[in-house]
Every structure is written in C-alpha cells, then in structure tokens.
Amino acid sequence: MRRRRILLIGLAAAAVLHPIAASAEPTDVSVKAAFLPRFVRYVTWPTAAMPHGSDPFVLCVIGSDPFGQLLDQAAGSQSIDGRHIIVRRMNSTAAAGDCQVAFVASNRLDELSDFGGRPVLTVTDGAAAGPRGIIQFAVVGGRVRFFIDQALAERRHLNISSRLLALALGVRQ
C-alpha cells in the first residue's frame, strides 16, 4: 500500500515536469468569436450609423465576455474597405451608443430591448434561453450556425447580404 502511494506521488511529480496541452477541435466559443467581426462585411448600415471618416467599426461585448482574447485576435484580422474593427467591452447598453455590432451576453439579455430601432446589429447566443438579437447563434450538428431576424434588421434599417442570409438556419421575414 505504501509503495502504491509513493508510486502515485511519483506520477504526480512527473506530471509537473511535462505540462503540455493537447490541442483538439476549436470550441464553439472560438468559432463564434471568429464569426462576430466577419458579420460586418455582410451588413450595410445607414450612412448616419457608419463610423466617421476612417474610424474603425466598433464591436461591443455587453455583459460578461465569453470570448476574451479570441475576439480581439479575430477582429484584428479583419478590415472592411480600409476600416479596422475594434472591440469594446461594457457592462450595460447605456454605453453602447456608437457600436455597429453588439454581442449581448446572457447576463444582459434583459437590456436587448434598449436598442429599440437604433441601427445596431445585435447578436445573441442561443445557448441561453430568452430574448434574441438580430443574429442568434446556435450549435447544430456540432457546427456553429445562426438564425437571422430580418424583420428586426429592416426595422433598424440594416441591410443583410444574401450571402449571409443563405448561411442562416432560418430567416424570420
């Protein structure tokens, strides 16, 4: 028994010496992070809601951020007509005045309606029950997909390209 105990401790010690991570498939979170800045290319905002001059697009994460660095990396790799995309994190919609895209985390879903008719592309995660944004992520068949609420997009004067609509699992007209 004592020998077994020593053996176990030995294994644990050996473990410390080789802490190497095994890589696997990406998580749904990393794919969602990759999607978010890419939506910008397939949506047209009314002129008044576009960034001024050559200012970057603003992608906001409202509430507790599930993405962390993944989103900053994904946003950093995109540019649309010379414009970059920057990520801003905030606790509530109160500070979301100049966001083009707003990912609303599940702990702030109750603030979704604050956007009213403002031209903001709201995105939510289907893992949480409750209110939904214009784009709602869903993991179907082990792949990250989404639903699109085009009626809501139209009310907000956002034009969503047919390429993005074609990828949606469903489109609410």
């Binding site: 696997a24 498939e25 998580t27 749904d28 794919v31 990759a34 995109q78 993991v139 792949r143």
Partner: peptide, 23 residues
Amino acid sequence: PQGPDDLTNLSIEQLAQIQVRSA
C-alpha cells in the same frame, strides 16, 4: 483539428462548416 489561430483565414462559409467541441 484546427486551432483557434487558423480560423481567421477561413471564409464565412468554411467557418460554418467547422466541427466544434461543445464548450
């Protein structure tokens, strides 16, 4: 397997085809 770093180079259609590990 496709590390998160590789995702940035994919088209949006390819992204929709990536098999993910559920969190």
